[in-house]
């Protein structure tokens, strides 16, 4: 979580320096992402993420250098060879992917991934992440309906930060909780405090158990705070009240988590400081490395159009 925060801050800075074209931050979402991933099994489960899953990526073993290559669009970027925005493409080691920026398209795809597992008799679980805004798309409804009909081993994980860019929850839906919709699809929906690692871990573990046992989907809604504007292109003072912004930090999961750990004597001041300074150093090293790396050259832009990409490359290089 601490590493994620520092790296996330660095990426924002790199944007301000003109080096990273765009960034969406996970600041405020860290606890929920770490706790959710911890309850799953990366050796066999599937993860369909969206652009805000910065911490989840790290929790799944992505190196800071690999993350930075996405933001700085460098040659050895592992997810899409820098064809796509950061956090888009497919992970080189775990089954994590994010095909597009088009909101909510990942939900029906997740139902499909889970259907394939069910048909093959695998006990793998599919976790699909989405925001409160994404819950409005037709794709979301269609995916949940399909998963409900077929009792698929899928976890619909909503990170509800109450804003879709500028649109607040009350303009997004006529109800207060996304989780309450699950009833309409015939599976359980649970609401958890997304700043509480224990609560998120428990809720996800229960959903994983249910899915592996063949009992079907669960919808989890974790309430979190989006601590920064939507992306580096946004300015949230245009639509968030000064009061709202002033109170944001009360829901900072980093502070909350370290307070809890210290209160339970699971973390000392000294250890906390160590974690912070190690993370800072890690981020500095990664930045120096990746900053010096080259961009992808033109040749490789013709790769992977179709299976016969060599033919494509030949045709279009000559065009």
């Amino acid at each position: 979580m601490v590493l994620s925060r520092y790296l996330d801050e660095r990426v924002w800075l790199l944007n301000r320096q003109g080096k990273a074209a765009i960034a969406a931050s996970a600041q405020g979402h860290e606890a929920t992402q770490v706790a959710c991933i911890e309850a799953t099994d990366p050796s066999k489960d599937h993860y369909l993420i969206y652009y805000r899953q910065f911490t989840a990526m790290l929790a799944l073993g992505t190196e800071p250098e690999e993350m930075l290559r996405g933001f700085l669009a460098k040659e050895t970027e592992p997810m899409s060879a820098a064809k796509q925005f950061p956090l888009h493409g497919a992970h080189p080691r775990v089954d994590l992917f994010n095909f597009s920026n088009v909101i909510a398209t990942q939900l029906p795809q997740a139902a499909g991934v889970a259907l394939a597992d069910k048909l093959r008799g695998s006990d793998a679980v599919t976790v699909v992440y989405f925001g409160d805004g994404a819950s409005s798309q037709g794709d979301t409804h269609e995916a949940m309906n399909f998963a409900g009909v077929h009792k698929l081993p899928v976890i619909f994980f909503c990170e509800n930060n109450r804003y879709a860019i500028s649109v607040p929850l009350e303009k997004q839906m006529g109800i207060e909780s996304v989780a309450s919709r699950a009833t309409g699809y015939g599976f359980p929906g649970v609401q958890v405090d997304g700043t509480d690692v224990i609560a998120v871990h428990e809720a996800t573990s229960a959903a994983v158990e249910r899915a592996r046992a063949g009992d079907g989907p669960t919808l989890i809604e974790a309430s979190v705070e989006r601590l920064l504007p939507h992306t580096t292109d946004d300015d949230h003072t245009r639509y968030r009240s000064a009061e709202d912004i002033a109170h944001m930090s009360e829901r900072d999961p980093l502070r909350i988590t370290s307070d809890v750990l210290k209160r339970r004597d699971l973390l000392t001041e000294y250890e906390d400081d160590e974690i912070h300074s190690t993370a800072k150093k890690r981020v500095n090293v990664a930045t120096d490395t990746v900053d010096a790396e080259p961009y992808p050259g033109v040749e490789t832009m013709f790769d992977h159009i179709l299976n016969d990409s060599d033919r494509n490359a030949e045709v279009f290089r000559n065009a």
Binding site: A73, A82, K83, Y295, P296, G297, T300, M301, F302, V315
Partner: peptide, 11 residues
């Protein structure tokens, strides 16, 4: 004729 358009700057 490739999907429009790569994110990296040279491409």
């Amino acid at each position: 004729e490739i999907p429009p358009m790569p994110f990296s700057p040279l491409q």
